[in-house]
Design a protein around this nucleic acid. Sequence first.
DNA 1: CCTACCGATCGGTAGG
DNA 2: CCTACCGATCGGTAGG
Lengths: 196, 196
Amino acid sequence: MVEISRRRAIEDVASDLFREHGYAGTSIRDIARALSVQGASLYAHVSSKEDVLWAIVDRAATRFERAADAAEADAEAQRPGDPAEALAALVRAHVGVLTADVDAAGVFVHEWRSLDPAHREAILSRRDAYEVRFRRRVEDGIAVGAFGMTDPAIATSTLLSAVNGVAGWYDPNGRLPAARIADHLVDLSVRMLSNA
Amino acid sequence: MVEISRRRAIEDVASDLFREHGYAGTSIRDIARALSVQGASLYAHVSSKEDVLWAIVDRAATRFERAADAAEADAEAQRPGDPAEALAALVRAHVGVLTADVDAAGVFVHEWRSLDPAHREAILSRRDAYEVRFRRRVEDGIAVGAFGMTDPAIATSTLLSAVNGVAGWYDPNGRLPAARIADHLVDLSVRMLSNA
DNA sequence: CCTACCGATCGGTAGG
DNA sequence: CCTACCGATCGGTAGG
């Protein structure tokens, strides 16, 4: 990947380190060392360590949101009013964002607690809104009989945990390409919600 | 809960803080403050900060292992050779350990990366062995037709992510008791593996 | 369990 | 992007 901007290179390196050692376990000097510069030099590009975390998390959140927008529009265009199809599209989109940048996605999933209070609040409400999109499809699917009876809140939380788990084991050089992994997650998700 | 030992009280407080702020984000003085003593006083009871993390993680791992032992023995006694029953018992046992001490279990799930290399290696191999117990049931279930065709490795990783997700939202004072949550997770897990 | 303290490292700034 | 530096905090020790 060609380096587009120094700022972006800092965020990419930080995503990798935050994912591996956590935000608190990564110092500004660790990030600088990976870029072969002095710690203080980073402050020409970022205003604080938290600023870097927020940039990573905000961008990842935006990607998840946009991918869900496109997935729902697409599902609605192809099979209008089909909750199972819409949910499958949401899961596929989610796995796509996750595998496209597993470091940033992993930071989004695990490190939001380290954001300062205002950012933390903002990201939590976006996460809630995002989860609601999934839960609505679960509820609609139950209502029309496409899914079996279950507790929609628990089922949706469990489904998102299952899908987010991909961030814990996905390897870009592993035996399965991202698209095949998405196929599996879609299949497992729909099965989980279907009647036995 | 009555305080059994000072050492144990330190670990309980540390479980709470490590889970909320992460290992690196929690200082020895943070733990001490929660116990109303000076930071240096903790060293009368623990040899290092990592020693506390290891104690929490090791104990949690042992609980998961013992609960799985009992669950498999029980399932084998009641319905010998039934992979779906054995898997259900494993999931129920896992959720039981998780909800019995959600702080310690959450630290086990998320903070093992912060262990020193030897402990990290040890816990990873125990985690692998634990996952194999689940995967064997998944494979056997597919072989006898109790479960639908799927990739056993991906299905098992996804199942464990789904179940571990409980640590992220379980609230001891929430609307559902732990036993009901376990019921739901068993149901969702078995559905996920069953034929559609 | 306390006070007093150690060297190391932290996030961040000044000034170039 | 560098050197030089700031005050604060870190994990941990000594000695009581």
